[in-house]
Amino acid sequence: MSDRRFMNEAVPDKGDRERKSDPSPGSPQQQGTDLSRRTFLAGAAAVMGMFAVNSCTWQEFIQNNFRRMTKKEIDETTERLKAEYREKYGKDFVVGTESPIDGTLFAYALDIQRCIGCRRCVHGCVEENNQSRDPEIQYIRVLRFKDGDMDLEHSDIYYNPDEVPQKGYYYMPVQCQHCANAPCTKVCPVQATWTEPDGIVVVDYNWCIGCRYCMAACPYMGRWFNFADPVIPKDEVNTETHYLGNRPRMRNVVEKCTFCIQRVRKGKYPKCVEVCPVGVRKFGNLLDPDSEVSRIIRTKRVFRLKEDLNTQPKFYYFFE
């Protein structure tokens, strides 16, 4: 098994780039229920408009938290987003808002014994989830350990051999663990991030104020920040999106793995499960005793990362 795509030129390589879009404080067209909020915000928008520095339209500025939106507001918002994306990427987007399916609690299991460290999941995830290519964001980090060692401080994510797997090493991919007792959602000052009823930890990119408190709180490096306007090549952008998932983001907000919410709520597997060449990635419903993850938890040796922190991840590593 050899793969040349695993160069993981990770993150903070940041170059200055010009801002692309200009703010236009548009006209208020939405008829909302919450009039006083809008009146206040109208004044605030005027002030912001004077500074004219954030690429932010009027509708975007007053947009409510996703969980407080009415059905009508959700429809208006997704329509607006679609128009915005069409203009930016020249393509028609689907911006789904599928709700959680009753009786599901998603969980992940990963066979740490058989992972070969090829990083196909990393790149599959980047493409599926419209992660910025510059500055680079990759939800999955593949840690390489020497056999017999599981000390995180000795792990390496920048390994770059000609061929994987290498003798004497094993690999452990890490991404958001979708903690049942998530420290990241607890700390958010504005509830821009929360756990959905099906167990997926999501971010409302239009509500996040970019304080990065959640990044400090996450013990697994599960959260990423858009330090500049995200760059996604037009021909690679994925147009099948979900509001809480892989829709294109804006600068200065936090994002993270959502178990591919745009796929799993439609009954598909997350992309990383699908692209893994050796099938070490398993996904399913924890509440269904016959699901693959439930069976793995029952029959294999499993562990979770940093159990001592009581974050209760819904991400299990297993081995025979």
């Binding site: 780039r17 520095v53 500055p135």
Partner: peptide, 13 residues
Amino acid sequence: LQLGLIVTGMTNY
């Protein structure tokens, strides 16, 4: 404000 927090030394780490 124009370029984002990329103008700072802060990173995802």
